[in-house]
Computed example of a mutant assay.
Amino acid sequence: MKINENTLLEGQRVVLVPYNAEHVPRYHEWMKSAELQQLTASEPLTLEQEYDMQKSWREDDDKCTFIILDKQQWANPEVGEEQCMVGDVNIFLTDPTDLSLAELEVMIAEPSFRGKGIGKEVTLMMMHYGVSKLGVQKFEVKIGLDNQISIAMFKKLQFQEVSVCKVFKEMTLQLPVVESVRTTLLHQTSHMKEWDYKQSCSNRQEMTSH
């Protein structure tokens, strides 16, 4: 999506930035993992295909993607963004006839960053963005049945199980953004800040050169 190509979202422990070409090599290395392929229901791509995918995600009107950066590393201007990467988060508008329905997907690719609440923080930040910028009124997630940690996290966020597909071995959960959900979400993400991404990159470069 072009809407977020110059958007940086700052949370307590993470920073979300647009998926750019500079991020592709690290992302490509992640997706060689059989575990991540299984968790994301993805097929391995060549590096060239990964670059093409990055371009299409930037252009397509039905996909909104951010790369998750570790804020502590990112705060050091001498550390490149690619070195700060820990995962990605996506919103897919899966139904052309209902743009208020969005499928949410979060991947914490770096094992050392799992189990620390980062997935929850990223999910809430992306939901805030989806509600406030994209007009999302209902979120949906599809999670492998063996990924009980993610299922438990989304259930704690009030997502409700709506179906189980035994063929694909996945569970679908949904959360309508009723007023009470919206109010809670905005409260939980009140710390989140939105910045101009290009300006932030420029500021980091200036700090490095001094």
Rank of each mutant, 00 (worst) to 15 (best):
A109V: 06
V86P: 00
S112D: 13
P96G: 03
M85F: 04
T94V: 14
S112E: 14
G87C: 04
A102P: 05
D95P: 00
C84A: 02
N90D: 15
C84T: 07
L99F: 09
I91Y: 10
L104T: 07
I91W: 10
L93S: 13
D98Q: 09
P111H: 07
V86Q: 01
E105R: 13
G115M: 04
G87V: 02
V106S: 07
D88Q: 14
F92N: 11
L93F: 12
T94C: 12
E105H: 13
M107P: 09
L93H: 06
P111K: 05
D95W: 07
T94E: 13
C84F: 02
V89N: 00
M85G: 02
G87N: 02
S100Y: 04
E105Y: 08
F113K: 11
A109F: 05
C84G: 00
D95F: 08
L101T: 15
S112Y: 04
G87L: 01
V86R: 00
S112T: 15
D98E: 10
D88L: 11
D95Y: 08
E103N: 10
L104G: 06
C84Y: 03
D98N: 13
D88F: 05
A109G: 15
L99V: 13
P96L: 03
T94F: 11
S112V: 13
A102G: 15
T97N: 14
P96H: 04
E103L: 08
L104N: 04
M107L: 15
E105F: 11
S100I: 03
S112Q: 14
L93P: 00
E110G: 03
M85W: 04
M107R: 12
D95V: 12
F113Y: 15
G115W: 03
L99E: 11
L99I: 13
E103C: 05
E110C: 03
S112A: 15
F113S: 02
V106Y: 01
G87P: 01
C84W: 02
E110A: 11
D98R: 15
G115F: 10
P96M: 03
P111W: 05
T97R: 12
T97W: 10
P111G: 04
A109W: 05
F92S: 11
I91K: 10
R114S: 00
V106P: 02
G115R: 09
M85E: 11
R114P: 02
M85Y: 01
D98M: 08
M107K: 09
T97V: 14
D88H: 12
D98C: 08
E103K: 12
V89G: 01
A102F: 03
A109H: 06
S100D: 05
S100N: 09
L104D: 08
L104W: 09
E110T: 11
V106Q: 01
T97Q: 15
L99Y: 11
L101K: 14
M107V: 14
V89H: 01
L104I: 11
D95N: 12
A102I: 08
P96R: 06
V86Y: 01
L99G: 03
L93E: 08
F92M: 12
